[in-house]
Design a protein around this nucleic acid. Structure first.
Lengths: 344, 344
DNA sequence: TCAGCCATCCAAAGCGCTTTGGAGTGATTC
DNA sequence: GAATCACTCCAAAGCGCTTTGGATGGCTGA
């Protein structure tokens, strides 16, 4: 059943039927009722493809995810972001279009998806410090919003980010205040902007406390559980071992915990652990009481907000670009405590 | 730049240009080269919306995810499935269209998405035992494939599933062989088919060993970390406590580990833990050596295969329905060991 | 030389919807 | 009684592509 058939059965024009169904005022209440009733009866659904062609809007938001063997972007954190964004899309009648593309194809994918109307807007994930995608999308003149920032990109663009520098600075200072001087940083991949910023926050806090940064105490990698595990062992095997850790993700913090357990060390007593907590739904940081001392900011909420901002940008393209900087919150849990005295 | 403009510049008809670009034989090599060169020069991209309307194919696969407060489907395991499926979609030029819909809207969402051509096929996630979506989609006559099965649905349909019953039966038997008699089951939500089957596998093994099932040793819930944690404490606080656990997910197994650690119990000595391992990329079960004894089957590989099967089904709709049953593999790790003697 | 035949190319008809620019009808106003 | 107006409705023109059913012209073979 398509519009033509429906209008024929109703002895009305396609115009009127279309208007009746789309809530235009140029149609009497009576006919509107007749039309909606018939649409329901014959189970009429407008063809989405035709609709998008006619309106010029596709009612879809694109997420383009690069994938390769080394670098996995469809991860736990991403899933929660997607869930948040998806909720908002649903409320506004949008769909989410995910395309995984090989690294080398990413640009042509943006072209393909963006330039000719498969989507109305794009969300850019995990920007690098000097991410070329941003300039590229700007030139395509499609609405887009970056989750995170790219510090070295000069073109203005819309973004939503957590104040990563301040977050990790606060967390690190908390450990310094507890007397720790050998603090291991188990960071994400530092080609990502957020990881760079976190590193800066760590360094700022450490330096401010008069501690010389030690390259042996800083790791950068994909934030998996085994990574946290291995890094912990390594940093505890050093001649001047770490007494505390700052982890960029709760996932690697789980690895830290495993390593400590293996060594018979008690978290919060022998070794302190602090992590960034994205409030992942399946891996909450405890229920009522936190398990890890953490700096937390919900990535799901970020997903929701990004979706809102982008949808607004699509609706009102003449407005200014949207930017939002969120502060993360420090939550004290039992995983951190005073630095044990060396000669005790 | 659209097709008309491009053809005008070339002094060719739209037909010829279209055919040249789409590789049809009715066009000379010379003009084809001219056309492709011009397309590149003017940066021409066909409008996807128009293309899909004209061809009737949307080159997209739909994933409809119900969401509600209680029941979270965009989870870690799902993310890995998506990643696998997405890879295959990319190879075949398909896109993935995710829609999160409120539980109560799910059917109308299927209608909306499926009936009028927004997608060429659908993947159904986490089917319940008697899942109404399957009959519903069958009537819509759109290609679809179920990841998992719905035991009580009689209509034939395509699916790919892991042999959950056998997997958990094998795992439970392994624990029984080690002398365990009080085995706690930390299962997923049993309205899901896979969880039901796993329960059956557990019960079969236990009964076969002459052990009476105990309702106090069986839990069913969303497979989060705190759930595993809480369930473990509860089952260890019973008068006749568990000596071993079977967990439906590595995520809840992490919660078990945390609870055991808190109690000063050593995994694999005092208490044995076995879990189902979906081989989630960020939460691998160890690196070279497994951490948990596990029954494992890659959900990412399942995603890839589901995508392949569905794409094939779309391409050759006259073929039989596709079904595939995978066996999971038992991997022995240090988390299981002989049941400690009661009176030792 | 001419019919027949490829090899190329084209005009035009969709695909199913939205939207522009009226047209018709009674009711209202002066 | 003519002019105006509000209210309904409609025909037809897109949106940008694919695809059907020719048209054209050069070339072959008898």
């Amino acid at each position: 059943m398509n519009l033509r058939e429906l209008s024929e059965r109703l002895n009305l024009s396609q115009t009127t039927v279309s208007r009746a169904l789309n809530g235009y005022p140029e149609v009497s209440e009576q006919t509107r009722r007749r039309v909606t009733a018939a649409a329901k009866q014959y189970n009429y659904r407008p063809n989405v493809r035709a609709q998008t062609l006619a309106t010029g809007r596709s009612m879809a938001i694109g997420h383009i995810i690069p994938f390769s063997k080394q670098n996995e972007m469809v991860n736990i954190v991403f899933a929660d972001f997607i869930a948040g964004a998806g909720e908002v899309y649903a409320q506004h009648g949008y769909n989410m279009s995910l395309s995984l593309v090989r690294d080398e194809d990413e640009f042509s994918a943006y072209r393909g998806v963006a330039e000719k109307g498969a989507v109305d807007g794009i969300i850019v994930h995990s920007p690098a410090r000097d991410d070329p995608r941003i300039d590229f999308l700007s030139e395509l003149e499609i609405p887009f919003l970056v989750h995170g920032r790219a510090s070295e990109v000069k073109t203005p663009y819309s973004w939503l980010d957590v104040n990563n520098t301040r977050a990790i600075e606060t967390g690190t200072r908390h450990l310094l205040d507890l007397g720790h001087r050998r603090i291991g940083l188990i960071n994400g991949e530092e080609r990502m902007d957020f990881a760079q910023r976190r590193r800066e926050g760590y360094l700022a806090a450490v330096r401010q406390a008069g501690v010389a940064p030690d390259a042996d105490l800083m790791r950068s990698n994909e934030m998996s559980e085994p990574y946290g595990y291995t890094a912990t062992h390594e940093m505890l095997d050093q001649t001047d071992p770490a007494t505390a850790f700052v982890a960029s993700s709760i996932v690697s913090a789980l690895g830290i915990r495993r390593a400590l357990q293996e060594r018979g060390l008690v978290m919060g007593q022998d070794i302190s652990v602090l992590c960034f907590d994205d409030e992942i739904s399946y891996l909450p940081n405890g229920q009522t009481v936190p398990v890890f001392t953490a700096i937390r900011s919900s990535v799901r909420a970020a997903g929701r907000r990004c979706a809102e901002l982008l949808i607004d940008q699509i609706a009102r393209p003449d407005q200014e670009l949207r930017t939002e900087l969120w502060d993360a919150e420090l939550v004290i849990g039992p995983s951190t405590g005073p630095c044990p005295q060396k000669d005790a």
